[in-house]
C-alpha cells in the first residue's frame, strides 16, 4: 500500500496503473465524476448550474495536482468567474417549471447509446501511456517536447514555457483563437438581434 500515497508522476512505472493511483487522485476523480453525474441528472436547471460550478472546482484541483497550473487557472477564472454568471443571466430570462422530482428520469436507450460510445472510447485507454510513464511520447520522443522545454527560455526569454509556446512558437494559432473569441462576441450580437453590447 506504500504506492497508494506516493508522489507518482516522476517515478518510473513498475506496477499496474490502478495500483498507482494516489488517495488525492482517487478522491478528486470521485468528486468530479459525482458532480458531472449530478449536473447531467439534476431536474432543476439552477441546481445543475450550481453543481456544475462545483464540478469545475474539482477539475481545477485535479489540473493543479497534475502540474498544469495554466489550465487550472483558466478553469478557475472562466468557470467560477464567467460561466456560472452567464448561465444565471440566461436563466433569469426563462420561467421556472415546478418540479416534484429532484432528478431527471433516465432514458434507457440514450444511456445505451452513450454506453456504447463510452465503451468504444474505453477500448483506446489501453494504448494511452500512464501518467509519468517513460513510454509516453513526451519522454520517448524528446526531440519535440524536450526541445521546447530547453529552448523556449533561450529563444524568447520567457520563463513560462506554456506562454512561450502559445504566444511565440504557436503564435498564429493563438491569433486564430483570439479571433474566434472576437467572432463569438459578434455572433452573440447577431443571435440576440442587437447592435450594441452595452
Amino acid at each position: 500500500m506504500t504506492g497508494a500515497i506516493a508522489l507518482a508522476p516522476s517515478a518510473p512505472v513498475q506496477v499496474p496503473v490502478v495500483a498507482q493511483i494516489t488517495a488525492i487522485e482517487a478522491s478528486l476523480l470521485a468528486f468530479v465524476v459525482l458532480t458531472a453525474l449530478a449536473t447531467a441528472l439534476a431536474r432543476d436547471v439552477l441546481a445543475a448550474v450550481i453543481v456544475f460550478g462545483a464540478y469545475s472546482l474539482g477539475m481545477a484541483a485535479l489540473y493543479t495536482f497534475y502540474r498544469a497550473p495554466d489550465v487550472a487557472l483558466t478553469e478557475a477564472a472562466i468557470s467560477a468567474g464567467v460561466t456560472t454568471v452567464l448561465l444565471l443571466l440566461t436563466l433569469a430570462k426563462t420561467t421556472r417549471i415546478d418540479h416534484d422530482v429532484a432528478f431527471e428520469s433516465v432514458n434507457l436507450p440514450a444511456v445505451g447509446a452513450v454506453g456504447i460510445l463510452f465503451g468504444g472510447l474505453l477500448l483506446t485507454m489501453g494504448d494511452i501511456p500512464a501518467v509519468g510513464s517513460p513510454d509516453a511520447p513526451v519522454w520517448s520522443n524528446p526531440e519535440v517536447s524536450q526541445w521546447y522545454l530547453s529552448e523556449s527560455y533561450a529563444q524568447t526569454g520567457v520563463e513560462n514555457t506554456v506562454m512561450a509556446v502559445l504566444a511565440a512558437f504557436r503564435g498564429f494559432d493563438t491569433f486564430g483563437e483570439a479571433v474566434v473569441v472576437f467572432a463569438g462576441g459578434i455572433a452573440a450580437l447577431i443571435v440576440l438581434h442587437r447592435e450594441v453590447f452595452a
Binding site: 464567467v82 454568471v85 452567464l86 443571466l89 440566461t90 430570462k93 473569441v181 472576437f182 463569438g184 462576441g185 452573440a188 450580437l189 440576440l192 438581434h193 442587437r194 447592435e195 453590447f197 452595452a198
Partner: peptide
C-alpha cells in the same frame, strides 16, 4: 468580449429585431 456577452445576455433577445 466577456463584458460584452454579459451586458448582451442581461439585455436578452430583441424580439422585434429592430436592433438592426
Amino acid at each position: 468580449v466577456l463584458m460584452g456577452l454579459f451586458f448582451l445576455l442581461a439585455n436578452g433577445f430583441d424580439s422585434d429585431g429592430s436592433g438592426f
